[in-house]
Design a protein around this nucleic acid. Structure first.
Lengths: 240, 240
DNA sequence: AACTCTTGTAAACACCGTTCACTGAAACCG
DNA sequence: CGGTTTCAGTGAACGGTGTTTACAAGAGTT
């Protein structure tokens, strides 16, 4: 079972503790509290020892981002699995709600991952969750279709690339979908849905709605209904 | 002319320089570079001297936020004034484009103001610009109307409050609008527009689109068209 | 047993926010 | 005018930070 040497096990254990301590500091006392010395203090070692595990404070923060994304993905998949309905619209709704719930429950993590003017992409970061889900769910929605000519011609190039990204992301999980199923009209609405989903959640987490919303949840659900309608799902289960 | 005493003039001048230096540091080297000592160094004074002007580093950062918002508001108003068309849809488009342009040109400022898990509101901060514009522009759009019963009943309470906020914001500028003009359907779409506008801009600034968008501008314009259609403006000038 | 590799330490450097006792000049007042 | 108050700015200090360096000591290898 434990093929690793004793030293490797200890190292892995320490690294786990480092991540755990960093995460706890972020959650409990904010981004600025995630300090090499604070982490080391938590583990009962000295700060320079952490350089045996990470090249710099910044590298550790990047690792923290990856951990957060992985955890969020797990939470989203869990909530998706807990969704009893096989109806695709219900699944999309479940994931979107899970995203909002997660963000509200983890504001510091959300801010770190989703709202830092960082390196170009981070595509493999959080995106993969949504890519896979979006690809699968849309591929399984064979009913409603949009014509490609609904979307401006200037966008075609980018949307075709995104189409490929979706197909690739899904195929990693063994599911094959024809490109004809995932036409540009749908792709466009997926992007628009991500804009609205992210927009609402970020505004709520950062408290940047133009007025104090006493009960944002129905507003979110209402937006979800509109999103699903736009994307081509029937709305007959909008009360769900 | 200069009613102020010599000392008051010097103080005001120094405060101006502090803000200016802080802003330059934020723009050129990021949030973490906005340091009391760095600012003082720039002015040729020592760090503790800054405590004669601000209670703490945090207070200075808050002031910086306010400055940024004021500047952004000025930029938006300027772009609005530069819009030749009297058509309301064109004005809305101009302001939304100006917002995107400003955010892309000032990513650090945008991140500081719009994406920090801060104090509850900050409503008077950036919001006022949009509130006034939204109120005025919508009030002047007497053509298209939405029925109140389009929006879920659960949202009415919040939307009525926002309605009042809009009316107040506009009345500060001397414009009076009847509450019947600003019905709940429109209000709801204003909020939804803010969600999409903020969502797209934040995703673009933070590089968090699910794929590399080579040319986001047409996508933004396309979204604007959809927003304006949803909000009730005619789309006959969508090519503008 | 001798050797290397790895994980930790302690000391140091330069930077940070913040406090405090102080100086010197501007402003005020009798 | 002279004395006094107000106040912007200083220098030293405290505890905190990221990071580098030289060094110790145990684990693994031969």
């Amino acid at each position: 079972m434990t093929e690793a040497t004793r030293r490797e096990r200890l190292r892995a254990e320490t690294e786990r503790e480092i991540r755990q301590a960093a995460r706890a500091l972020l959650v409990e006392r904010g981004r600025d509290a995630v300090t090499l010395r604070a982490i080391a203090r938590e583990l009962g070692i000295t700060a320079p020892a952490l350089y045996r595990y990470y090249d710099s404070h910044d590298a550790l923060l990047r690792q923290l981002c990856d951990d957060i994304c992985a955890d969020m993905a797990a939470a989203l998949y869990a909530d998706l699995a807990a969704e009893p309905s096989g109806h695709v619209g219900c699944k999309v709704r479940a994931v979107c709600r899970a995203f909002r719930r997660w963000a509200l429950a983890h504001p510091q993590e959300f801010a770190l991952v989703f709202a830092s003017p960082r390196d170009p992409l981070g595509a493999d970061q959080f995106g993969s969750v949504f890519l896979q889900l979006a690809g699968q769910l849309i591929a399984s929605n064979l009913v409603a279709t949009h014509a490609d000519d609904e979307v401006p011609e200037v966008l075609h190039e980018d949307l075709v690339r995104f189409q490929q990204v979706l197909v690739d992301a899904v195929s990693v999980h063994g599911v094959q979908i024809g490109e004809d199923v995932l036409n540009l009209g749908k792709i466009y609405h997926v992007v628009q849905s991500w804009v609205r989903l992210y927009g609402h959640v970020a505004l709520e987490v950062f408290g940047r709605f133009p007025f104090a919303v006493s009960n944002p949840e129905p507003m979110f659900d209402s937006m979800l209904d509109q999103m699903l309608t736009d994307i081509g799902f029937q709305e007959d289960d909008s009360a769900m």
